[in-house]
Design a protein around this nucleic acid. Structure first.
Length: 259
DNA sequence: ATGGCAAGTGAAACTTGA
């Protein structure tokens, strides 16, 4: 089973590009972030034509997440528990049915910039809530994949120019610490487990020629429960997508689980 | 050293992203 995550930076502005990638890569499951539309405006029919079941947690203008799966999605949850006042659409969870079901969580973790503001506080609070929820899911002792745009650069090796990110919310000690705390619950970073080579970037800014200069960062991650990590067979960063037509600033990352 | 792009909204210029 191949499970993808991709921050598409508006699914409707990029629909042709996104569909072309789905036709070629044909993931079994995909979590999309920053769809930037309400549920009713999500192009569900286009994905259904490609054989996908669709679950959407949308929002007008900002954020928005979706999950697509070739097999039916069960137990769909929209929104991260722990704060009923949180109106951002940043979390979707479902059990992907099949011979060996996998629970998949798609996240769009808050950016948190600029630091020293309520935005950074919101980011850290969101990470705390994710930690609490993940702890509960891990207690189920089942295959679990939490993937998405984490907006965290875990280590200096995950940035081409780490010194340029020192003042950024993505690289603050608190952000990195919260990401480590998540892993310390017993979750495995799929890329680090199977590859771990510095330079596995997943995002390049549109500005300042970041792509041609390879000024990238690794911020899109798959974290796996032990039961999922045992089945991990491959991790693939679809880097070439960044050089294509009308690209998102993030590229798809795909993992493969046995069975 | 600095800034440089893209998308949504809504119809110019602001907000957001990372």
């Amino acid at each position: 089973m191949r499970i993808a995550t991709w921050n598409v930076n508006s699914v409707n502005a990029r629909l042709e590009t996104v569909l072309a990638w789905f036709e070629e890569a044909s993931p079994d499951v995909a979590c999309l972030q920053e769809i930037k539309c309400i549920d009713e405006k999500f192009p569900a029919e286009a994905f259904e034509r490609l054989g996908y079941n669709v679950a959407v947690h949308g929002q007008k203008t900002y954020n928005g997440v979706a999950m697509l799966s070739k097999t039916p999605l069960e137990d769909v949850r929209k929104g991260l528990p722990g704060d009923d006042g949180d109106e951002h659409a940043r979390y979707i969870e479902a059990v992907v049915s099949g011979p060996s079901p996998v629970r998949v969580c798609g996240i769009y973790l808050p950016n948190g910039n600029p630091i020293g503001t309520e935005k950074f506080t919101y980011k850290l609070g969101w990470m705390k809530r994710l930690n609490t929820h993940a702890r509960g899911l891990l207690a189920l002792e089942e295959p679990l994949v939490i993937c998405g745009d984490y907006n965290v650069i875990p280590e200096p090796e995950d940035a081409d120019k780490p010194e340029g990110w020192l003042g950024d919310a993505l690289f603050q000690p608190e952000s990195r610490g919260a990401f480590r705390a998540l892993k310390n619950l017993g979750l495995t970073d799929a890329y680090m487990q199977l590859d771990g080579t510095p330079g596995g970037y997943t995002f390049w800014d549109y500005q300042a020629g970041a792509w041609p200069r390879n000024h990238g960062i690794r911020i899109d991650h798959h974290l796996l429960s032990p039961q999922a990590a045992d089945r991990l067979r491959a991790v693939d960063i679809h880097r070439d997508v960044r050089g294509g037509e009308k690209p998102s600033d993030h590229v798809p990352v795909v993992i493969e689980l046995a069975l």
